[in-house]
Design a protein around this nucleic acid. Sequence first.
DNA 1: GTATTTCTGGACCCGCCAGTCCAGAAATGC
DNA 2: GCATTTCTGGACTGGCGGGTCCAGAAATAC
Lengths: 194, 194
Amino acid sequence: MSLTVKGRATRERIIEAASRRLRSEEPGEMRLDDLLADTGTSKGQLFHYFPGGKEELLLVVAGREADRVLAEQEPYLSELGSPESWRAWRDALVARYGAQGENCPLGSLMGQVRSTAGVAAVVSAMLRQWQDHLRDGVRAAQAAGTADPGVDAERAAAALIAGVQGGVHVLRSTGDSGHLEAALDEFLDRLGRT
Amino acid sequence: MSLTVKGRATRERIIEAASRRLRSEEPGEMRLDDLLADTGTSKGQLFHYFPGGKEELLLVVAGREADRVLAEQEPYLSELGSPESWRAWRDALVARYGAQGENCPLGSLMGQVRSTAGVAAVVSAMLRQWQDHLRDGVRAAQAAGTADPGVDAERAAAALIAGVQGGVHVLRSTGDSGHLEAALDEFLDRLGRT
DNA sequence: GTATTTCTGGACCCGCCAGTCCAGAAATGC
DNA sequence: GCATTTCTGGACTGGCGGGTCCAGAAATAC
């Protein structure tokens, strides 16, 4: 399937609309007809560009959204090491998710697709990357002597990912960011050698 | 609305069936017709006992399921204090969720109802109770001298809840219980004075 | 400038499933 | 007992929403 310039633009417009709607106040279930209304396109076009229908489209969107999660944490994520860098990352995360409020693009996405398998895989891969960055950050801090060398970097990173995920989850359903902050701060306390 | 003995039994049967289906291998979306088939009841009855329809029914089920979550952790939860009791609780949790696999009754429930508000409230309340138990456990351990007194019990409990929630979430979508275990173990390490 | 491919619009189909309605059976009240 | 309330079954409705189809417009190829 080769796309013309115009075609690629339309396809992009559809993805963009889905993505935007997902990040909007009330994502709810995403209906194809809404997207068509948003973009001024038609059923024919949507299925022309996404023969797999809704599922295929959402999978593409999931990929974009996953990339965005990591991209939004740069440059913090790649620069973890010093206590200040950890702190900055922590603050950025809290600010980011606090502003986002009850909404969580990938979270909503997980609930939309019947066979969640595809989206789940995308999310897993993203989590894995995220965790790797954190683990490297812990090791860097240990190498620099600013973190307790007794901490198992891999396990600590896994626990941190769990804490962040859970914190965001609670934030999503209660609007309270306390759990997210608690998870982050407990981690930082444990990291720093006392 | 007063219920006869028979009436109460039927109502109970419906709730029970919904509850069971939620905990089954593949909960997916819950269809009213399935419940009717499971229980040998009819639409008329279902709407007779739950005038609010599906939403009302699921809210009742949510309450039951939330109680179950806490009940299943007894007697561990009320007896937290000694290192052994924490360990036993940890193992019970991992075993419990490991066995459950990718499924999570309350998790699926959250995705089912349009206005998730009701179910979310039930879950929040349950989480709050859970967290209180954990906090008390931390304090008990501190009082007994088996936990670092420098730890803020409330915040540590919040972080632990976040970790457990996130761990279960990851377990749910990948089938890997590593994150849950990591979160629990990191917490226990931090708790124990080294 | 003709042929081929890609793009676009929208009418239509169809399965799904929550919710309605009502008529008759069973229980309960007195 | 008769009247009243509760219980039960199932046919029916209605809307929602994903997916199909096809005819014609626009772009591209050569």
